[in-house]
Each structure stands twice: as C-alpha cells, then as structure tokens.
Design a protein around this nucleic acid. Structure first.
Length: 958
RNA sequence: GCCCGGAUGGUGGAAUGCAGACACGACGAGCUUAAACCUCGUUGGCCUACAGGCCGUGCCGGUUCGAAUCCGGCUCCGGGCACCA
C-alpha cells in the first residue's frame, strides 16, 4: 500500500477539508450565478420579476462601495461586505425582497498617478483592477444581484452624474419655501418684477453677462474665486483631506498654498439647517450625528453694525455669539482680504499712533498692503506653526461702539477668517481668549463686563487669560436705552438683541461653520463638467441630449508642475491640452444656432460618483431617467419608522462621517426638492464597522519586517535571529502584515473566513487579526459536517427520530437567540449560540434530522456554501437561500426549571432549581430555608428580603 | 486646547441582579510505532482538607439590598475638530 493511500484513508475520505470546501463553494457559486439566486425583482422595468416576491416587504442593504485599488484586497476589506451579506441573507429567509449588490467607485487619483508613471490609460488599469477585485469578492460567496452592479467610470453611469450636476446648476434655493426650485422660476420673478434685481434696474435692461452674474449668485452650483489649496509641486489643487496637518501635500510632501482660482462650488450651505434638522430622524450612531452637527456648526448670535468714524455711511458688520458683551468691545478686527479694508484706510496715520500698531510703515495703506502680502505668501505650514502668535496691523481707521459710544481702533489680522461670519469681529479681549492674546500683543485696552466668579477681580490688566464663562452676571453695561447690569448671560443676550433690533443696527441671527463645497479638480481621471463658455465667458449648460460628455483622449495625463515654493503659479489642467476637444462649435438648442464655445476643463471631485449611487442600483439600465420614480418609491420611499425614506442599512467605515455622508445627503435633498425622488435622506440606518487591525513588527531601525515570518518565544518576538518590537496598527502591504482573503480561503475555505470575521467580536469594534484563531471556525464547520455526514461513508448520518427534550429546548433556545442577534447585527454572539447547539448535537448519540435541519438553516446566512450543500444532502432540491428561517416556539425557549441565585448581603450562597412561574412568597420561603443561607445568616435577624422571581433572592441581615 | 469613544483571564471577546458564554492559545489524557488530525479533561489569582473559602472587571471615591454595568474625580489608549468670533 502506498503512503498516499494510507494517509488518505486515515484522514477520513469524506471529512470537511479545505479541498472539499473549495469544491463545494465553487459549485454553489456557479449554481447561484446560473439561477440568478440573488436577483431582486423590481416592480416594473427591465428588472421586473415575480409579483409574489415584489409583494414582500422590501429591504435595501448596502455597503460603501470600494475603490478598485491595484493592491487587491486584504482580510480587513470584506468585513463590512460579509456583515451586510449575512443580514441580507437573513432578511431573505424571513420573507423579504432584498436588494443587495456592489459597485465600484472608480474615478480617483491612484489610477491617474499610475497612468502618469506607466503611460497606461487609467481606464485600462482601473478596469483590470475591477475584474481582479470582482474575482476576489466572488470567492467569498457574497449574494449580490450582479445585474445591478456598475462602476462610476461607466459613461452610462456618469452621464447621470453630469445630469444631476446640471439639475443643481439649474436650480436655486428659495429661502421662504425652504427648498430648491428650478432657476427658470427665479428668472420669471425677475422678469415680472416680483423680485427686484440687485441694483434695481429692470431685468430686461440687463446684459446677458450681467444676468449670468446675478443668477450665479443664486445657483446651487456656481463658479467663484474662493481660495483653494494650491500645490505647485504637484501642479494641482487639493482637497482639504489631501493636505496634512503640517500643511503639506500627503503625496510628495510639497508645500500647499491658499490661492484664488476660479472654481466650481456647490451651495451646500443653503441646506445647513435642513441637514441638521433631518439628522434627528435617522438611525445613525450618535457619534457620527455629533460629528455632522459639529461640522455644520450652528451658532446663534447677532449681527451688529459698527459705524466707521469719519467715513460717511461705511459700516462694519460683525457676527458675534456674545452680543451681551458689546459694552466690552474695545477694538475691531477685519480679515485681511475683507473688501471694506480699502475703503476705510485713511491717507495718513492718526496723530499719536503707536509704533507697534503701524508695523513700521509710513502710511496705513502701505502697512495694510504689506501685511496682506505677508499673510498670502504664508503657506499653511507657517500659518499652523504660528497659530498661537497673534499678528496684525492697524488700519488707521476707527469705528464707534454703538452701545458705549466709544471710538475703537480697527485692525486687520489673520486670526479673523474671511470665510466665517462676516469676516469681521468686534473684539472683547476681557472675555475671549483670542482677543485677549491679541490685545496683550498690541497693548489694547480691555474692559471687564462679565463679573468673574473665580475671585480674580474685575481688572483685566491683572489677569492671565480671558474670563469666558457663561455662568456669570453682566456688569458695567449701561448705555442709551439699554442696561444689562445684573442680568445673566442668556438674558443679557436676549435684551441686547432686542435693543439692537429696535435701533435698527443689528438683529439676532444664526451662523454656520459649514462652507460651500469646492467642486472642481485640475485632474484628468474624473467626470468632465457638462459646461461650455461662450465668447463673453458666460457658462452654459449642455443640453441633456449631449450627455454623457465623455472624457477625451489626451497625450499626457500629468498636471504641469512648478517650483514647489512658487505660490504665484497657476494650474494647467490635462483636459485643456486637447485643443480640439476644448474649442467647439455647438448648437445648444437655445434658438441661437451653432456658436463657438470653450469647454470647462476641470473635472469633478472623487466624491461626485458616490453622492447618488444608491439610486442607480435601483434601476441601473434606465436610459430615460436616472431612476424610475415608481421603482425608487418601492425601495427607498418613506414608510413606518423611516419618515425620510432611504436605504434600510448602510455599512461602512467611520472615516466617511462628514464628507461623503454629508455630500450624499445634500444631493438627495436637491433631487427630492426638484421632485425626482421620494426620499429626502439617502441612508436611513447607518452602521460603522470597526477596523481589522494587525500587528506590525519592527526591527531595531524601526523598519517593518514580514509579520508572517516573525516567531514568538516567551512573550518576545524574533525575526531572522533579531529581536523585534510589536505594535498594533493598520493592515497593509507597506507594513508587511497584510493577510489576503485568498490565502485564508485556500487554507480553510470561504465559509470559515466568513465565520471567523463575524465571530471576532462586535461589528463596530476594531480588533486585531489573528490567523492562528481562524481554525476555531474551521473546526465548527467540521463538527457541523460530521453531525450530518458520515466521514467514512459520505452518507447522511441523521436519524428520523423525535428529538429528546433537551435537544428540543437547545434548538428552540438557539433559534430564539440567533434571531435576536441577527436583527441587531450581533453576529459574534449568534455564532456562539450556533456553536453551543452544534456542540450539543455532537454529544447526542444520533442526530435527529429535525435538529440538523434547524442547525443548517441557522448557519445558512453566515456559512452559505456549506449550508446549501448540507441542505441538499439532507434531501431538499430547493436552494436554502430562500428557505424560511426557523421560528422558535416560546414554550421550549424557557427552561422547565430556572436556576435561582440566593444571595446574602449580595454574595451568592446557594442556587435553587425552581419553576419559571414560582411565586415570590414561595421563592422567599425556599430561599430562607436553604441550609447555606441559614448558615450564612448565623442566627442574625433578617432585615429585608429582595425577591426577583424567578431568578434571584437577596437576603439582607440586620 | 475642545468634543466623542474605550479599558473585563495569556489572547479575541461574553455577561444590564450568578463575571469570564463562545473561540484561540497553553497544559494533561486518549487514539497513533510516531506525528498531525480528532476526542475527552483542566485553564482569572491566592488558599485548600479538593468540599469549599477569600480576592478580582484601569485607579480613587459615591449611590444601592446588590455595580463590569449608574454617578463624581483621575490615569492611560483610540478617534474627530482645531484661531469658527
């Protein structure tokens, strides 16, 4: 007998091994694909199907779709995909029509960088990556409706991204109606005079350029010269998230400057209040809601006008949240870029201006211009470094404090930001830390108007910092028609707001931290804007018939780079080099015939494609509409418990807490306002999965060594004979600690990998990967297999006998627990309960068919391949995917007897087996009669007995 | 600096009135010429007569008949924001 045969015979021919798992998994994956097992029917259209299935309650279960990187997947990536797949499978088995699929977020910088390096077209490398990722994901047995998958780079998809851009471009926010409306309705108001033009002239007298300018002030997508992150070393502008905390580019580590460039913006600020309000109805983690609330940053306060002394009619309008401290405002500060600065700067320094205020310049104009230049030339690196030091310069102008009547100096300083509030502040150095620091640096006066509660006295000259508490009373604040003295901060604010309003010099107002969304990038690999400019520079929307506007071929994908330190350079977009594409003659269908135009050569940011993809999954092949309204209403519409509609479950990483999730909410609201969809929110329930971490091993030089080759001896770690350090970090190629799903599948099979990832811990908690521990779930499947199949004969080994009482209860208890856990995404405890039941069945001599089948159904959402195989071996010819999930009989969920704990003074002294419905009196009597209790009491009187039938009695002696 | 979240055996984690379910690892036994696989047992610490006893959920304090769980104060770790008036 040869050795191989001997080995094969001893290793039980029909054991569940990695080889058998691979065979089973491949076979069922093919079966599911052939039979369209995971296809969810729509109520109409090309994906319409079985009306019986459509009539079921619908559920839309979604993942944050991946960027198809060239590096492929590691085991951390599919964690969320497995979790949604388990949920989707559970919902299918509990009578729902489940939409579950996955697409690809495929525009992005890595493909473009790769193209620059290799000359490969980004589309070629991206599509190859997608194919590779699809193969890796297919191996995991994810039940996706493949008909609904797409990539954001498909022209059929980005046609609609461009279409939505045009919808946003062609609308404005009606503050009164609190919703977006078509821009044509605004034009109508201007035409018939119900809304006056900015300068009061009739609309008909405005030139085309003037009209475009007016409308640009209203459009939800508009071009502006807002400062952006310009990185000359890379030749492109960068999103904030691509700039490091040190103010350098994440890629290449070049300095980043603020530069004014004409850019597209989205007026997301118009939706600030609704984005805030609608959070309340969403089933999201509180931490994420909080992050969004902070990002939106609503502040209540007041706008106050300060007349400029000697400048006729000029006023400085500030926003403050501390109008109660107006009497303490002793100077003002404008942002260096503020428009008003040039108008208020006098020709010469006022008499007696201190040297420290002038910066040594002979005139205010020169001082201002020098400071502005210095501020603009600062890269963010320097700004960050100097953040604590206050700089600025006197403008030479004075304003009048409307409450105290005092003349107060006006400064410019870069600690006041143009982008927030009105770009101007009233400075109250005694009660604001920043103003305090500035006042100290420039020796400005301070007035205490809020009485300190910490015993520091009322003379700010003696203080070390500002007194900024809200829990205090106002003092020294009496003026013409208003007295705040003695009021608390809150009442004082209200009183002051009232007074400002009466006098017509201010009003209560709400301000938001949220900024408009910079929407253009100087890149190649993104959606082109469907915008052209005429010879006057007026932007025109392309008609829908010209969509998609496809990306043109270019010779060079790279942006033009410059001297990294030269902030005065301007980007040159890759698209602008294709002159033939840029300069076109088009008939826009506006009745003016063919004309010459220049195309917009910026592209949209990465976020664009992910702002609305949930909608396209619903109706992916529709070429009339982005989604059919009836289909959208079916899957996403509001219903009981989901007042604003949306996806039923959206799972992804918490790193998207503000950007993607806020942008997607914004687009939803615009589409909702314009009547294209019925859901005002895209994602009703959000769940953030934790990160799978991995140990990083480093040698004495701090360089990561291959984690797989590190050996552990007595709590120390060794690599190549050298001792190495261990720390928990991210998993990835660069840290040499990546474990791929492919290797785990090869070693144990996909079902084992799925179980392990779900069993590791609660889904929302980050935890370290431990390849050694994977075998535990493999053993679970081997025992499961052995409970059903005879390992030596391969025959089904279950018996058609009634289960004994204990097994009956074990099954029902497991069913009840697993259902509960599944509904709350607690897969780790669900697996523990399944394991317990499985372990119980390995102990009974013969496994009853009924119990084996329940067990197979319970594990089916988690380990679908082995479940499908066993289900068929047990004699069923329908797929387990659409079987009914077991239902627990409450009679068998509760044990016949429960263990009651008897405590004395909170310490467990005895345990009683009692009936679940035992009365409190009986239980108390039995507990007090228990010898161990009598013993513990030692004859002491019983003061009190707490009875929580049937589980606990606590006896308290005197 | 401000705002969140977390800390339980050697490890991942269970547990909302019995701390340590389930799993990994470790140790012991069985099977085996041997090893692997598999099966069974032990596995928080200390004491122990092996029946049990005492201590124990980051630290200090509190509420309660009873606290891993609730409250106050700290320590450490992780995340977010950052001159936002």
């Amino acid at each position: 007998m040869s050795e191989t045969t001997a080995a094969a015979e001893t290793a039980a021919p029909h054991r569940y091994t990695a080889a058998l798992a691979a065979e089973i998994e491949a076979r069922w994956q093919d079966f599911w694909d052939e039979h369209g097992t995971y296809e969810a029917p729509n109520p109409k259209g090309d994906l319409a199907g079985d009306p019986g299935a459509v009539a079921r309650p619908e559920r839309f279960i979604m993942d944050m779709f991946p960027y198809p990187s060239g590096a492929g997947l590691h085991v951390g990536h599919p964690l969320g995909y497995i979790a949604t797949d388990v949920t989707a499978r559970y919902l299918r088995m509990t009578g729902h029509n489940v939409l579950h699929t996955l697409g690809f977020d495929a525009f992005g910088l890595p493909a473009e960088q790769y193209a620059v390096q290799t000359g490969t077209h980004p589309r070629v490398s991206t599509e190859a990556n997608i194919e590779n990722m699809k193969a890796q994901l297919r191996r995991l047995g994810l039940g996706h409706d493949r008909r609904r998958s797409f990539a954001t780079i498909d022209p059929d998809y980005y046609r609609w991204t461009q279409w939505i851009f045009l919808q946003i471009f062609n609308s404005w926010y009606d503050e009164e109606a609190r919703r977006a409306r078509p821009i044509a309705e605004l034009v109508e108001q201007f035409e018939n005079g119900t809304r006056p033009t900015p300068d009061g002239r009739p609309w008909s007298e405005l030139s085309e350029v003037e009209r475009a300018e007016v409308l640009g002030g209203y459009r939800l997508a508009y071009a502006s010269d807002a400062p952006v992150n310009w990185c000359p070393g890379l030749g492109t502008v960068l999103a904030n998230e691509e700039v490091t905390a040190e103010g350098r580019s994440e890629r290449g580590n070049y300095p980043v400057f603020k530069a004014k460039l004409r850019q597209w913006n989205m007026r997301i600020t118009a939706y600030a209040e609704r984005l805030l309000e609608d959070l309340d109805a969403l089933d999201w983690p509180e931490a994420i809601k909080l992050q969004q609330r902070n990002w939106i940053g609503r502040s209540e306060g007041a706008r106050i006008d300060f007349p400029v002394d000697g400048a006729d009619g000029e006023r400085i309008t500030v926003f403050t949240t501390r109008q109660d401290t107006l009497f303490g405002a002793t100077y003002m500060v404008l942002a260096p870029e503020h428009d008003l600065v040039d108008r208020i700067v006098p020709g010469a320094w006022p008499e007696g201006t201190r040297e420290a205020w002038t910066g040594g310049h002979p005139t205010p104009a020169e001082a201002v211009s020098a400071y502005r230049k210095q501020a603009a030339a600062k890269s963010d690196v320097e700004r960050q470094a100097e953040a604590k030091e206050k700089t600025g310069v006197f403008t030479g102008a004075y304003a009048v404090n409307p409450a105290s009547g005092e003349r107060i100096p006006v400064f410019i300083a870069d600690y006041v930001l143009m982008g927030y509030g009105t770009g101007a502040i009233m400075a109250v150095p005694a009660h604001d830390t920043r103003d305090f620091a500035f006042a100290r640096a420039f020796d400005l006066p301070m007035r205490c108007v809020v009485e300190p509660t910490d015993g520091r006295g009322t003379d700010p000259a003696a203080w070390d910092d500002a007194f900024a508490s809200y829990e205090a009373r106002i003092i020294d604040s009496a003026g013409e028609g208003v007295t705040l003295d003695g009021l608390g901060v809150t009442e004082a604010k209200a009183r002051m707001t009232e007074w400002l309003t009466e006098r017509g010099i201010g009003e209560g107002t709400v301000n938001y931290r949220l900024r408009d969304w910079l929407f253009s990038r100087q890149r190649y690999w993104g959606e082109p804007f469907p915008i052209v400019y005429d010879e006057d520079g007026v932007a025109h929307a392309l008609p829908e018939s010209m969509l998609p506007l496809e990306l043109p071929e270019v010779e060079d994908y790279s942006p033009r780079t410059f001297d990294p330190d030269d902030a005065d350079t301007q980007p040159e977009t890759p698209l602008s080099r294709n002159e033939e594409w840029v300069n076109v003659t088009l008939d826009l269908g506006d009745g003016r015939g063919p004309r010459r135009f220049r195309r917009e050569t910026n592209t949209m940011p990465n976020w664009a494609g992910s702002c609305w993809y949930e909608l396209r999954y619903l109706d992916p092949h529709n070429d009339e509409k982005l989604v059919d309204p009836e289909i959208e209403r079916y899957w996403m519409g509001p219903r009981e418990g989901k007042p604003t509609g949306g996806v039923d479950l959206y799972v992804g990483g918490a790193e998207h807490a503000v950007l993607h999730l806020l942008y997607a909410r914004f687009w939803s609201k615009v589409l909702y306002d314009l009547g294209h969809i019925s859901s005002a929110e895209p994602f009703h329930k959000l769940f953030n999965q934790g990160m799978i971490q991995a140990y990083v091993y480093r040698d004495s030089r701090g360089i990561a060594v291959p984690a797989a080759e590190v050996e552990e001896r007595d709590g120390e770690y060794w690599y190549n004979g050298e001792k190495v350090s261990r720390a928990l970090g991210k998993m990835g190629k660069s840290l040499k600690n990546a474990v791929t799903p492919d290797e785990i599948c090869a070693e144990y099979g996909a079902d084992t990998l799925r179980l392990y990832e779900m069993a590791m811990g609660p889904l929302d908690v980050s935890r370290p990967w431990d390849t050694r521990a994977v075998v535990g779930q493999y053993r679970l499947l081997q025992r499961l297999w052995r409970n059903v199949v005879d390992e030596t004969t391969g025959e089904v080994a279950v018996v058609d006998a009634e289960p004994d009482e204990e097994t009956l209860r074990a099954v029902h208890k497991a069913v009840d627990g697993v259902r509960n856990d599944m509904e709350n995404l607690r897969f780790n405890t669900a697996i523990a309960k399944i394991t317990e039941l499985n372990n119980h069945l390995t102990k009974v001599r013969e496994v009853p068919r009924w119990a084996a089948e329940r067990l197979v159904l319970l594990i089916a959402p988690l380990a679908p391949h082995v479940a499908e195989e066993l289900w068929h071996r047990l004699g069923h010819d329908t797929s387990v995917v659409h079987e009914d999930f077991p239902v627990a009989d409450p009679r068998y969920v509760a044990d016949e007897t429960v263990t009651c704990v008897v405590q004395v003074r909170g310490k467990v002294k005895a345990r009683l087996e009692v009936a679940p419905d035992i009365s409190e009196a009986d239980l108390e009597a039995r507990a007090l009669a228990e010898p161990a209790v009598v013993n513990a009491l030692g004859g002491a009187d019983v003061r009190k007995v707490i009875v929580r039938a049937p589980k606990l009695v606590n006896v308290v002696p005197a």
